[in-house]
């Protein structure tokens, strides 16, 4: 009996495995299942799941947004989206992976300003031109915050103090070369103040602010909003063109006189040789998902601004943004 047990086990495993193997093979071999739709388009896309590479960890802002859009967009796409986190080296790991895939639209990347920061920092030897845009989905303002009981009520006050006490004010960000770091440096240069920028891991700057290890934090607005609502942290400024919905009293950097945008964008990109027709199909899917009621609500909970932009416009936008980022990083001395 004992000798037969493993064999039985193997057979019981083999039979369903072969069955599953066959059926999944059928699916792959029969692309015309929803034939009507396929006839309308010039090419047959998609015939299998589309994989989205997320450059940062699960549960983070980028990841949640992508997973939500994937969930909404799937119906429209007619095939599942598979979300895979490929993290590391400020996004370079994921970008490198997607770049090396076949440009057929089945491998796309959830991109952001990290395409520029990772390149200019020297983490990868190719830049945004390796990819082409599909759609921009959201913009995220960056916030500058101090603890609720700090003496500074405005950004001007904070930096006036910083100018009088060079090297004393410590501002936390999410890591050297991260977008929040660039923002922090841009603002301190704007005021001409000598402050210490302290790089923290993801999200830990907030905890350091609450623990009074630093005087101010530069973080994505979404990452500090619950502290703001709880009254433990005070926002001094946000980036972007207009004030944010969740904190209408907080002035933008523009209102403080800073001329520049400094907003994080999140978008989808594909390898640059991906055919136009495929891009168009994916663009349509994401347009549908981004403009859906469901996503609007989701974005509000998350504290990000829904901001759709089509493929063509996005390419121009990224080119300009990359040039801006390069200039900024040159200024800080981070550009390789």
């Amino acid at each position: 009996m004992k000798r037969w047990l493993p064999l039985l086990l193997i057979i019981s495993l083999l039979v369903p495995a072969l069955l599953v193997g066959c059926t999944s093979g059928d699916q792959e071999a029969a692309p015309g299942t929803n034939g009507e739709e396929a006839d309308e388009k010039k090419i047959d896309f998609p015939t299998k799941p589309v994989e989205i590479t997320v450059l940062f960890g699960a549960g983070g802002g980028q990841d949640l947004i992508v997973r939500k859009l994937a969930e909404i967009g799937e119906e429209k796409l007619g095939q599942p989206f598979v979300v895979v986190n490929r993290t590391g080296a400020g996004g370079a790991v994921g970008y490198t992976y997607v770049k090396d895939q076949k440009p057929d639209g089945y491998n796309i990347v959830a991109s952001s300003n990290s395409i520029s920061t990772a390149y200019h920092k020297g983490n990868m030897d190719f830049d945004y031109r390796t990819f082409r845009g599909i759609a921009m989905v959201v913009k995220e303002p960056v916030s500058i915050a101090v603890k609720a009981d700090a003496p500074w009520k405005t950004l001007d006050e904070l930096f006036a103090y910083a100018k009088e006490h060079p090297g004393e004010i410590k501002i936390g960000n999410s890591g050297v070369g991260s977008f929040t770091h660039l923002t922090g440096v841009a603002v301190s240069k704007f005021y001409g103040a000598d402050v210490v920028h302290v790089p923290f891991g993801k999200g830990l700057a907030v905890s350091a602010l609450l623990g009074e290890k630093i005087d101010a934090s530069v973080q994505l607005a979404a990452e500090v909003m619950n502290q703001v609502e709880a009254g433990t942290v005070r926002l001094l400024a946000v980036t972007g063109d207009k004030r944010i919905e969740a904190a209408p009293d907080v002035p933008t950097l523009k209102e403080y006189g800073y001329d520049g945008n400094l907003t994080l964008y999140r978008s989808f990109h594909a390898p640059k040789d991906t055919p136009d027709e495929v891009i168009a199909i994916l663009e349509e899917v994401f347009k549908y998902a981004v403009e859906s009621e469901e996503f609007a609500e989701f974005a509000k909970e998350l504290g990000v601004q829904v901001s759709f932009m089509g493929a063509e416009e996005l390419d121009e936008f990224v080119a300009k943004d990359d040039a801006d980022t390069a200039r900024l990083m040159e200024l800080i001395g981070l550009k390789k």
Partner: peptide, 22 residues
């Protein structure tokens, strides 16, 4: 042959089909 095929299929089944791990 049985063991080699069984392990291959078994792990494929558990990971890919049951748990959805790529």
């Amino acid at each position: 042959i049985g063991t080699a095929a069984g392990i291959t299929m078994g792990i494929y089944l558990v990971f890919r089909v049951l748990l959805g791990v790529p």
